[in-house]
Amino acid sequence: MTQIGLTDPSQMVVTAAPAPFAPRKRTVQIGTALLTAASVMYFGGLFGVYMTTRNRFLTEQSALEALGERTSTWIPSSAQVELTAPTIMAWTLLMSIISMQWAVYAYKRDDRSHGLLAIATTAMFGVAVINQVVFQWKQLGLVIDDTGGSAAATLIYTITASHVAMIAIALIMLAFVAFRAVASTSTSDHVDSVASVATFWYAMVGLYFIIWILIFITK
C-alpha cells in the first residue's frame, strides 16, 4: 500500500489523465439552500424565544393586574414604536423581490447590462433598508438596562440586528455575483449563482415580514 508521507514524486505513478467528470448539478444552489434553511432556523429560534418570553411576561402582568398591583408593558412606554419606517421597509423589500427576479431573468438571457442594473437596484434597496433600520433604532429609544423587567429590548435588538446582518451577507453575495458576471465572458454561466443569491434574498424578505408582524404590528 502507499504510505501517506510519500515524498518522491518520480516513484509515483497515477492513472492516465482522467476522463472529465460530469458537470456538477446545482451545487451552489443546493449549498445556498442549506445556508438559507439554517438562517431560517436561526430566526425560528429567535422568534420562538421572543414569543415565549413575551407570552410569559404578559401572563405575569395579567396576574399582577388581577391583584391590583402596578403593571408594565412588554415594550416600555418610554419607547417609541412607530409603524411608518417598518412599513416603508416592507415595501422596499417587496420591490427588491422584483428587481432580484429581474436579475435572474437577465442572467438567464445572457443580458449583462440589465443583469448588473438589476443587481445594483436590488443592492440599493438593501442598503436603503439598513439605513431605515438604523433610523428605527434611534427612534425607538429602547435601552437594554432600563426596561422595567421586560426582555423586549434585548430581543428586539437581537432580532433586528440579526436581520441587518442577513441583509449584509446577501449584499456581499450580490457583489460577488456581479463581479463574476463582469469578469466573465458569458453572463449566463452564472445563472446558478444569481439564482442562489435570489433564494437567500427571498428568505430574507420573508423573514422581515415575520419581524414586521411580530414586533412592529403586534407590539
Binding site: A38, S39, M41, Y42, F43, G44, G45, L46, G48, V49, T154, L155, T158, S162
Partner: peptide, 11 residues
C-alpha cells in the same frame, strides 16, 4: 437544530 443554538448564544 444548531442554528437555534446559535440564536440562544446570540441572545
Amino acid at each position: 437544530a444548531l442554528p437555534v443554538l446559535i440564536a440562544n448564544l446570540v441572545i
